[in-house]
């Protein structure tokens, strides 16, 4: 699924990485615990998380994940955005809960890892 479609479905705002909204993710993983992300994500998936902290960006970077969606309306600070931009990671945020955001994406065809 292309990132711009994810943005549309979640009614999300893009905080950085607008230029790569036409890239695809093949799956998604929703989690607030980064070591679970590091254990389960197998491919270039989308990360949905409520953990608004630099480790979300570092974790995504370690796994070559190209996009993070922060849920529950949490806004990352400028340090996090800068880190993501430097690493070529698109950051979006949406007001939905993790369950709802995941559910909308799943029912639109984006499966889990």
């Amino acid at each position: 699924m292309k990132l711009y479609k994810i943005k549309e479905i979640l009614n999300a705002s893009v905080l950085c990485g607008e230029e790569q909204l036409d890239i695809e993710v093949d799956s998604a993983f929703s989690c607030d615990l980064m070591s679970d992300v590091l254990s389960y994500v197998k491919s270039e998936a989308l990360l949905l998380t409520g953990l608004v902290n630099p480790q979300a960006v570092r974790t995504a970077d370690m796994l070559d994940m190209k996009c993070i969606v922060f849920v529950r309306g949490k806004l990352p600070d400028s340090v996090i955005i800068k880190m993501a931009r430097e690493r070529g990671i698109t950051v979006m945020c949406c007001g939905l809960t993790m369950y709802c955001a995941s559910g909308y994406l799943f029912s639109s065809g984006l499966r889990g890892t």
Binding site: L33, M34, S35, D36, L38, S39, L51, N53, Q55, A56
Partner: peptide
């Protein structure tokens, strides 16, 4: 926990 860690998954991974 504040960093987003503490699941007991690190060493096994």
């Amino acid at each position: 926990r504040d960093l987003g860690f503490g699941a007991g998954m690190g060493l096994p991974n």
